[in-house]
Structures are given as structure tokens and as C-alpha cells.
Write a protein that binds this DNA or RNA. Structure first.
Lengths: 109, 109
DNA sequence: TGACTATATGTCATATCTGACATATAGTCT
DNA sequence: AGACTATATGTCAGATATGACATATAGTCA
């Protein structure tokens, strides 16, 4: 991972391990973050596809516009639980969720 | 869902919606719980396969034996985040995680 | 029997997540 | 310009999850 990428993650509030050389990051840590970011991207795509505003969607899932924005921005304060429950609420199937997770190895930018 | 199944879930601390007839449960709610239970089963299977005790595994992931027991028991106090991070720590790949999620539609008992 | 190991279960202080709110930014329309 | 809509971002009180601990249960071995 280059430092640009790292900076982007840290700007979103991610606390990235205590790796000494400041660049290394465990594969597991990275995989987990990438999964969340993938779910976050899919969430936004699905919401837009349904022509829902963040506020409208928030109402549906008893959340708030600001939290939906954070979910879609890949904010570190958002749990996997919330991302998955939100995707399910948008009609995502297990199969689709599985695909998002399997294919999550993507660029962060 | 029959009431036996529901009782088993409620015994583990799951708060199952407010469905009026006490049997109906949203597909999304059910899918989410089943995913967690599937991950929980896989976690136990992988740990045993590696001949690790709950205490030994807990040490590895900076957790505690009791929390590992709860993870494997499908306790409602365990988050998806923790389950997934734990599986990654046991060496599960994205592909495997995806499979567990896709195939999570299984019996609860 | 007792010692040891593994797992289960309940509790709790603290850490983390969440919805809500305020406010900022940006685009569109009249 | 001002009004309106959508999204972003920071903060925070309350809710939920967490590791740690105590303790229970059950199996094995000598």
C-alpha cells in the first residue's frame, strides 16, 4: 500500500494498525477495510439506482441522512453490520452480498 | 419460521422485530441472522481444524475465551465485524467468506 | 478421588457505534 | 439574488459491543 492510499483511509478515520514501517498493513486488516469499502460503494450504487435520496433511504431504515452519507463515504465509524443490513434493506440478495465481498479487492481511491 | 426456532434464537438474545403475529419475520432480518450464524459455525469449524483452543485463539486475536465461546454459540451480542475479522485471522479468504454468506440459508438448530 | 483442560454463561466497565442535530457546500430553478 | 434539494462533515448523548473476570459444567487422566 502506498502512502497516498493510506492517507485517504486515515482521513476517513481509519486507525491502521501499528506497523513499524508505516506502510505495511496486515493482509487481514486490508481485506476487512476493502470489504467495507466495497459494500459502501454498492450501497450508494443501489440507492441511486432506486432513485432514493439519502434522506429518503435513511427514513426507510430508521437512520439519518448524515449516517447514510457516512456509510457511502466509507467512514470508519460505520460497522459491517450496518452496511449489510442496509444493503439487505435495499433488496440485495445473499448472492449479491457474497459477490461484493469476494470481489472487494479493488482500488481505494 | 416455527416457534421452536424462534425460541432458540431468543434464548441467544436475539430481539426479533415487532411482527404482530409473532411468527412472521422480515426476510432481511432472517437473512442477516442466518449469515451471522453461518459465520459462527464456520469459525468454530476452522478453529477446531487448526487444533486451537478457544483460549488460544482468543489470545491470537486479543480477545477472551468467553467472547470466542459467545461467537461460536451464535450469541446476539457478537457483531458481524468481529465474526469476519476473526475468520480472516483464521486465514479465511474473501472467496470463502463469500461462500459462507451465500450459502447461509440453513437450519438454525 | 483430585488435578487439569476445554467450553459455557453471566456480569460489568469501558470502548465503539448510532441516530440526531447543526451547519456547510454545491447544484438547480425562477 | 433567494429558495429549494441533495449531500457532506463535525459533534454528542445514548445505545450497543467488547474484553475481562468469575464461575459453572463436563471430559480426561493418574
Amino acid at each position: 500500500m502506498n502512502s497516498t492510499k493510506r492517507n485517504k483511509l486515515e482521513a476517513k478515520g481509519w486507525k491502521l494498525g501499528d506497523a513499524q514501517d508505516f506502510l505495511a498493513l496486515s493482509d487481514e486488516e486490508m481485506a476487512f477495510i476493502e470489504m467495507k469499502l466495497a459494500l459502501s460503494r454498492e450501497l450508494k450504487a443501489r440507492r441511486l439506482h432506486k432513485h432514493l435520496s439519502q434522506a429518503g433511504f435513511a427514513r426507510r431504515i430508521n437512520s439519518s441522512q448524515s449516517r447514510v452519507a457516512k456509510m457511502e463515504a466509507g467512514d470508519a465509524s460505520v460497522s459491517m453490520d450496518l452496511l449489510i443490513r442496509s444493503l439487505l434493506a435495499l433488496g440485495a440478495s445473499r448472492k449479491e452480498l457474497a459477490r461484493f465481498i469476494e470481489q472487494s479487492k479493488r482500488r481505494v481511491a
